[in-house]
Design a protein around this nucleic acid. Structure first.
Lengths: 234, 234
DNA sequence: TCAAAAGTGTTGACTTTACACCCATGA
DNA sequence: TCATGGGTGTAAAGTCAACACTTTTGA
């Protein structure tokens, strides 16, 4: 292969079990959730000794007969039981040294799910929600993957109505604003925020109010039907 | 693997020559150039019979011991002789059916090069510059890759000083504006364009003028030194 | 009646757009 | 002197940021 060329049928057959296939492909999911006024990410304890005590993202090898997108859906389904989730590809991470056991290229996805309304089976396997602010170090290059994914989420969140995947069906403007603040890491002015959101016309006024509060209740909204589809194509 | 888990050393060994490595990884480069007031892309005639007569992007399999970024540099170097180029990863394309000969996941990069000032060795291998407007169909899913890459370039080009990689060292504001127009596919107002560019403070006034024109010559500029680094990290 | 958060408009600063005339050059 | 594009400013519209008071509720 000193003179490179495109992959041809004949070549595929020649090299089928040679070096070029000694690269494994995995998918890693940055699963974001929002609870207790904090943005969280779902992590599992790493089972590699090299990363003893560290957490890692949820990932798995891609099967030879499944699309990348399908692989990320499968991981989400297996890990959280959820199959109606927002998922978006972020980046491919493929440095030679990134996996201690061999050459593994990973395609990172991020996902947005509503922690509260879907009761996850997190008990078995050491799967837990971690506040973003508290994460210092992760196994593999997963901290870098997490940082890249968060940046992508920040870029996207004012453009497209994807944030609602992190909230229950009904929410108040205050809850929505607090969520934006957690994601963007800034404080927003209430009046300006409401104006900005109202211009986007994403929200359906439910004519309902919050209940069980020790102060004046706010109106409840949901995202309009046409923006509810969670599954989006790459 | 009915219950998924992370890759462990033991597992890597177990499955080493099994199905999980029957996925090949390639890199495809969308090499943009600018000439004759048109945005172009470097394509090669596909050598697969399935794609008889179609062109495809430049790509190659990733070697087990090279980073993804290095693979894309290698392809560019081998194909164009250039080793000081701007390259950015765009997206991973991995649908099961995308390659007729087997499972190949590809990581797409786009690259910006100055057609005029680097004389490429394009004679051998059927490598040619194609105007973007004229490309209807490409081999594999390369049309989709091209479209995605162009969209990314469009998003990036007003934010960061990367456009200068497409121009010779010295250029006039008119040339720069025409290039922006080709990339964005819109017409720009001359006065407003100049204001916008001047605010960004990317340009060095060379105190030189265009020559050999049949009309009033414009001033020549170059990009400021601090924005000249072409190689950027992911 | 108090505490807590809901709800709501205006002003000034800044940014963006639209638009037209004179100038320098070579043919 | 003509054709071609170079170079420049202003006004109006729109967007963004800062900011304070009244209302509703439960305790």
């Amino acid at each position: 292969m000193s003179k490179s060329h495109l992959l041809k049928t004949a070549e595929i057959e020649k090299i089928s079990h040679l070096d070029y296939f000694n690269i494994a492909v995995s998918v890693d999911c940055v699963i974001f959730g929002y609870d207790d006024k904090e943005l969280k990410v779902l992590l599992i304890k790493s089972d590699l000794e090299e990363f003893e005590g560290l957490y890692s993202l949820l990932g798995d090898l891609v099967r030879p007969d499944e699309d990348l997108d399908s692989a990320s859906y499968r991981i989400l389904k297996e890990r959280t039981g959820l199959d109606d989730v927002y998922l978006e590809q972020v980046h491919a991470f493929g440095e030679t040294g990134r996996h201690p056991s061999g050459r593994v290229i990973t395609i990172a996805y991020y996902s947005l799910i509503d922690i509260k309304n879907h009761k996850l089976q997190l008990s078995h396997n050491e799967l837990h929600w971690h506040s973003l602010g508290e994460i210092r170090k992760l196994a593999f290059d997963h901290k870098k993957i997490l940082d890249t994914s968060l940046r992508r989420l920040q870029e996207k969140v004012m453009e497209d109505p994807i944030i609602f995947n992190l909230l229950p069906e009904k929410f108040s403007l205050r809850e929505l604003q607090e969520l934006y603040e957690s994601i963007l890491g800034v404080e927003l002015d209430r009046r300006n925020f409401r104006k900005k959101i109202s211009v986007k016309d994403w929200l359906q006024d439910l004519n309902e109010m919050e209940t069980n509060l020790s102060h004046r209740p706010g109106k409840l909204y949901s995202v309009k039907k046409q923006y509810q589809r969670k599954i989006q194509q790459a």
